[in-house]
């Protein structure tokens, strides 16, 4: 079993961020999947929770794998919290009926993890401050959501002035 360090997670993620064309969804290389010691069941749980929070059925499994690995490094008791969050959403699906998360004080820890899961997918960064781990840039869902109008920062729009026309 390969146990990647925090730095290695960054290198892996950076690798696929840098290998593609701006604005296009790039699959995380499958070669990395399953090489970081993250149990497949944990990735499955993460994907199950993520699908409910994001309301998308199609989520990239390899990116999920990288997010789980980063979360285990950056977030305390991630695995246990993930199990509890999965159970909570199964038992009380109505918690996600509103547009904004509000699990109440009794489930503050689960809500915090839900926000972290969303943050990982949409910003490409897991954790904060000293614990922040970069996972991806162009594959962050926030960039994908606007991909028909904007390319991720640092990538090109094309010839000079191609941004002149209405997007």
């Amino acid at each position: 079993m390969v146990n990647f360090t925090r730095r290695r997670v960054i290198q892996i993620a950076g690798g696929f961020a840098l290998t593609g064309v701006a604005g296009r969804w790039l699959a995380v290389p499958e070669a990395f999947a399953g090489q970081n010691g993250v149990p497949a069941e944990e990735v499955d749980d993460f994907l199950a929770v993520s699908r409910k929070l994001i309301m998308r059925d199609e989520l990239d499994g390899n990116l999920a794998n990288a997010l789980v690995h980063a979360s285990k490094l950056a977030l305390d008791s991630f695995t246990e919290q993930l199990t509890r969050l999965k159970a909570l959403l199964a038992e009380q699906p109505a918690l996600l009926d509103g547009e904004q998360l509000d699990f109440g004080a009794a489930f503050a820890a689960e809500e915090a993890l839900a926000r972290n899961v969303l943050s990982g997918w949409y910003t490409g960064v897991v954790g904060s401050g000293d614990q922040a781990i970069y996972v991806t840039h162009i594959n962050a869902l926030s960039n994908q959501v606007v991909a028909d109008k904007l390319v991720p920062t640092s990538f090109s729009y094309g010839p000079c002035g191609s941004w002149h026309r209405a997007p």
């Binding site: 929070l53 994001i54 547009e99 509000d102 949409y122 959501v145 920062t153």
Partner: peptide, 22 residues
């Protein structure tokens, strides 16, 4: 994109509403 996403996540948005607001 990055700043409004962080803003929306802090406001607790999720699901389709999050993406619409982004």
């Amino acid at each position: 994109v990055a700043s409004v996403t962080k803003e929306l996540l802090a406001e607790g948005y999720h699901g389709r509403a999050l993406e619409e607001q982004v």
